[in-house]
Amino acid sequence: YKIYPYDSLIVTNSISVKLPKDVDRTRLERHLSPEEFQEVFGMSIEEFDRLALWKRNDLKKKALLF
């Protein structure tokens, strides 16, 4: 996945969300650098992957990456 800054990946309720063209809309968190991922989620990507799907989705919603 290509890395993008968190600010360019957050999704708000506005209709005209302009995400970069090559971003996987269903896995926005994968486009964060490991350092920024840790900062946003408070855990590593590996720890995040071990969580239940509902928990990952809940965290993504709170981080505006859903």
Rank of each mutant, 00 (worst) to 15 (best):
Y1L: 14
Y1M: 11
Y1R: 12
K2H: 12
K2Y: 07
K2V: 14
K2C: 08
I3F: 07
I3W: 06
I3P: 08
Y4P: 02
P5I: 03
P5N: 05
Y6E: 01
Y6C: 02
D7E: 15
D7S: 15
S8C: 13
S8D: 12
S8T: 13
L9H: 01
I10R: 11
I10V: 10
I10Y: 04
I10C: 07
T12S: 13
T12Q: 09
T12W: 15
T12G: 13
N13I: 06
N13G: 13
S14P: 14
I15R: 14
V17R: 14
V17K: 14
K18R: 13
L19K: 05
L19R: 06
L19T: 08
P20M: 06
P20R: 04
P20T: 04
P20K: 04
K21T: 12
D22P: 03
D22L: 04
V23C: 04
D24I: 06
D24L: 05
D24K: 05
T26Q: 13
R27I: 05
R27S: 09
R27N: 14
R27W: 03
L28A: 03
L28T: 02
L28N: 01
R30G: 03
R30Q: 06
H31W: 03
H31R: 02
H31M: 02
L32H: 00
L32A: 00
L32R: 00
S33G: 07
S33F: 03
S33C: 07
P34R: 12
P34T: 14
E35H: 10
E35Q: 13
E35C: 08
E36S: 08
E36L: 03
F37R: 00
F37N: 00
Q38N: 13
Q38I: 10
Q38T: 10
Q38E: 10
E39H: 13
E39S: 13
E39K: 15
E39C: 11
F41Q: 00
F41S: 00
G42K: 13
M43K: 03
S44L: 11
S44R: 12
S44A: 14
I45D: 03
I45L: 13
I45H: 08
E46K: 11
E46P: 08
E47V: 11
E47H: 09
E47F: 09
F48E: 00
D49E: 11
L51V: 04
L51G: 02
L53I: 10
L53M: 12
L53E: 13
W54E: 13
W54N: 12
K55L: 12
K55M: 13
K55G: 04
R56Q: 14
N57T: 11
N57R: 08
N57I: 15
D58M: 13
D58Q: 13
D58T: 10
L59H: 04
L59M: 12
K60F: 02
K60S: 02
K60Y: 02
K61S: 07
K61Q: 08
K62W: 06
K62G: 09
A63V: 10
A63C: 04
A63M: 07
A63T: 06
L64Y: 10
L65F: 03
L65I: 05
L65M: 05
L65C: 02
F66Q: 07
